[in-house]
Design a protein around this nucleic acid. Structure first.
Length: 491
RNA sequence: GGUUUCCUAGCUCAAUGGUAGAGCAGUUGACUCUUAAUCAAUUGGUUCCGGGUUCGAGUCCCGGGGGAACCA
């Protein structure tokens, strides 16, 4: 007799689980061919419990095993579904020897099961399902991350988001809040008779913003395309087409840096309303953000994660001119009539890097971006921006150097820019050409043709959904509010 | 792109240049109201990869891969 070298696989959780699966299949049960019909989600089920009436209500619930406590002939386990966690109580005398043994030995943390049973209250006051019958409907062949510390390795959190969602309640809640915010935005706008539309991602010219686009190619047409960097120009064509209130929530792509605040693909909301203007957009965005706070977060103020300051969404929102903020910061009432050399010196004096090659408005905007914007924590409408910053807005009637726009800053971040949209095709063409001259951008002639057919006066607004979610969920990074942030492909 | 920093068991983390360890998870056993259940026993390592220095490298050096923070 040769002794068979019994290889100890007890340390290899993957192998152990595969072994359990093989055993089940050998007895004629394949969990991957089983299913269950849940009658309730976990929290809905718990809500059915009537005080003092144990085992009166029968439910079927399903989810992933996240806690497993065997205690001889009775066991408590917990399963997790979309709504959260519910405790289950398994007893040998209810299930019988064979099924109880299958439960004890066949199941592992991470498995997905369905159970039918009755609701009761444990000694310690937790509503629990007393299990009469159960089915395994998916075997987890890999173990879950540790239960107490969860998953902390940021790389694994992003690459295997599903594990993060299973194990880190905070991530789960934060990303679910994002879904609810987006859904609420749709409802809010639809209630105001805005129509949601979808416009092309593949575009011949990347318009509506200044950013480096991703290049791609259509084989059959034999044409180079870019992925859109903005939604703006196609939505405005909708205004020409007679859709007076439109919006799109869509992905934009910018081939630029990746950071805590930037992902190469990000989600924008853009809204256009005919016969409105940037002041109308102020009301709209205030109402929208307050509505999200009330209905989704259930609050009227939130704590700003970075500064610790409490941001108040109620009350009057501050409104201030760009120019006044710059003068205040530089302490120079004559800043805007200084020469370029003086501005370079002025920027450097404030401790910032200033490139002499920059345009004057860029020098000034460096001060705004680096020293002013990060300090604006409470909701602030910055108005009357220099016209060079955006070629798509109307010039302020009594100040040809500025445009009828605002930038809403909250928590030191630009949350929502809005314009009185330029609808004069000739002015628009001149602005495009001036910009094209500087940056060698192609002019979107097709858009100008549309404007020549007549676009109603309109207010337009954009909201960076990712940044809004950072703000409202107290996240530290854009990666925490994007399910699958961009990473280098793993090895 | 630059600077700094991190990568050790399935997960969370230890380890003066000198025998790679702990908790959880896993395995075996006990336990019919547990709450990070408890108790007893126990398995588990290409220390990200490739070189180098050294009697000796998880640790020091060089190159590469990936992550993070700050800067651009």
């Amino acid at each position: 007799m040769s002794e068979t070298p019994s290889t100890d696989i007890s340390h290899d959780q993957h192998a152990v689980r595969r072994g359990k699966l093989a055993e089940m299949r050998a007895t004629g049960f394949d969990p991957f061919r089983a299913n269950v019909s849940p009658t309730h989600f976990s929290q809905d089920a718990k809500a059915l419990y009537v005080e003092g009436q144990d085992n009166a209500v029968t439910v079927t619930v399903a989810g992933r095993l996240v806690t497993f406590r065997v205690q001889g002939g009775s066991s408590f386990v917990k399963i997790q579904d979309q709504q959260g966690v519910i405790q289950l109580y398994f007893r040998k005398d209810v299930l019988g020897e064979e099924r109880y043994q299958f439960f004890k030995k066949g199941l592992d943390l991470g498995d997905i099961i369905g159970v039918t049973g009755t609701l009761f209250l444990t000694k310690t006051g937790e509503i629990t399902v007393r299990v009469d019958a159960f089915t395994l409907v998916s075997k987890a062949l890999r173990p879950l991350p540790e239960k107490w510390n969860g998953l902390t390795d940021s790389e694994q959190i992003y690459r295997q988001r599903y594990l993060d969602l299973i194990v880190n309640t905070e991530s789960r809640n934060r990303l679910m809040t994002r879904s609810k915010i987006v859904s609420h935005i749709r409802r809010f706008l639809e209630d105001r008779q805005f129509l949601e539309v979808e416009t092309p991602v593949l575009q011949a010219i990347a318009g509506g913003a200044a950013a480096r686009p991703f290049q791609t190619h259509h084989n059959t047409l034999g044409v180079d395309f870019v992925l859109r960097i903005s939604l703006e120009l196609y939505l405005k064509r909708m205004l020409v087409g007679g859709y007076d209130r439109v919006f799109e929530i869509g992905r934009n792509f910018r081939n630029e840096g990746v950071s805590r605040r930037h992902n190469p693909e990000f989600t924008m909301l853009e809204v256009y309303q005919a016969y409105s203007d940037y002041r109308g957009m102020m009301t709209l965005v205030q109402d929208l953000l307050r509505s999200i706070c009330q209905n989704i977060l259930g609050v009227s103020e939130i704590k700003h994660a970075a500064s610790g300051e409490v941001i108040n969404f109620g009350g009057e929102w501050r409104e201030v001119r760009y120019k006044d903020l710059i003068i205040e910061k530089t302490g120079d009432a004559g800043w805007f009539s200084r020469s370029k050399e003086e501005k370079v010196a002025g920027v450097q004096k404030l401790g910032l890097y200033a490139d002499p090659k920059w345009e004057e408005f860029e020098l000034t905007n460096e001060i705004f971006g680096k020293l002013i914007e990060p300090k604006l924590i409470q909701p602030t409408f910055v108005t009357h921006l220099p016209k060079e910053l955006c070629p798509l807005a109307k010039i302020t009637p009594d100040d040809p150097g500025t445009i009828d726009v605002f930038e809403l800053i909250i928590g030191g971040m630009e949350i929502a820019p809005a314009y009185s949209e330029q609808n004069d095709p000739d002015v628009q063409r001149a602005m495009f050409e001036a910009q094209a001259g500087e940056e060698q951008q192609k002019v979107d002639q097709d858009f100008l043709l549309a404007l020549e057919h007549g676009m109603p006066p309109a207010g337009g607004m954009g909201i960076g959904i990712d940044r809004l979610c950072i703000l409202l969920t107290g996240a530290e990074s854009i990666r925490d509010v994007i399910l699958y942030p961009q990473l280098r492909p793993g090895s």
